[in-house]
Computed example of a mutant assay.
Amino acid sequence: MSNCLHLAIPAGDLNIAKTFYCDVLGCKTGNSEQGRWIDIDFWGNELTLHQSVERLPTVRHDVDMGAVAVPHFGIHLSENEFNALKQRIESAGLEYLDKPYRRFIGDEFEQETFFIEDPNGNVLEMKTMVNPEVLFKKS
């Protein structure tokens, strides 16, 4: 687990948040402190959900695909994992904050992305890249 990202966020009701992250997104739980926080294995990264009453404020920033919600976090998935996740989201009856969108078509950075909110309003961007090996390619 060296070089794994750790992110702690206000999650509202932990039971509701755990259902979203585990049952819908397909993550697993880790360590926890009852009623205070729970670690989620967010595709090999440590996402700590904190019991809270507050929500993070979001704003919209303009990018090529429109105005996206900031702050946000997410994960890059293989195309199969990405499509399976879209199916789980749709089967759960959840609505996209920003519907799936293909960007940079024909470019080496071509990708499909969508944004969703967790039950506490935290924004997640999920994406799949046609050529993931170019993500940090130096120009």
Rank of each mutant, 00 (worst) to 15 (best):
V70T: 08
V59W: 12
P132R: 02
L124A: 03
D64W: 10
R102H: 05
D107P: 05
A17R: 01
I38C: 13
R36W: 00
F109W: 06
K86T: 00
D118C: 07
H72D: 03
R60C: 07
A17I: 06
Q111I: 09
I16V: 05
I16M: 07
H50S: 13
H72L: 10
E46V: 06
A8H: 10
M65S: 09
P10I: 02
W43N: 15
A92P: 02
K99H: 15
D64K: 07
S2N: 08
E112F: 10
I40G: 00
L47M: 00
V130G: 03
Q87M: 10
H6Q: 03
N83M: 05
Y21G: 01
I38H: 01
V134E: 13
L49P: 00
S2D: 11
T48I: 02
N31L: 06
P71R: 06
C4N: 07
L77S: 01
V130R: 11
N131Y: 15
A92E: 04
V68C: 13
G44Q: 05
S2Q: 15
W37C: 12
I40K: 02
I9S: 14
N31H: 09
N15D: 08
L7V: 06
D98V: 04
L7M: 09
N131G: 02
R36M: 13
V123M: 06
R102W: 13
I9E: 10
V130N: 08
A67K: 14
V130I: 11
W37R: 12
M129H: 14
E125M: 12
F20T: 00
S78C: 12
D64I: 04
D13I: 01
L77C: 00
V134A: 05
V70E: 08
N3I: 10
T128F: 13
L97Q: 07
L5K: 14
I38A: 08
M1L: 11
E95N: 04
L25V: 09
E110R: 06
W37G: 03
F73Y: 03
L77I: 04
F73K: 02
S78I: 10
M129Y: 07
I89V: 09
K137C: 04
T48D: 00
R103K: 15
H72I: 09
V59R: 07
S2F: 15
G35C: 02
V68G: 02
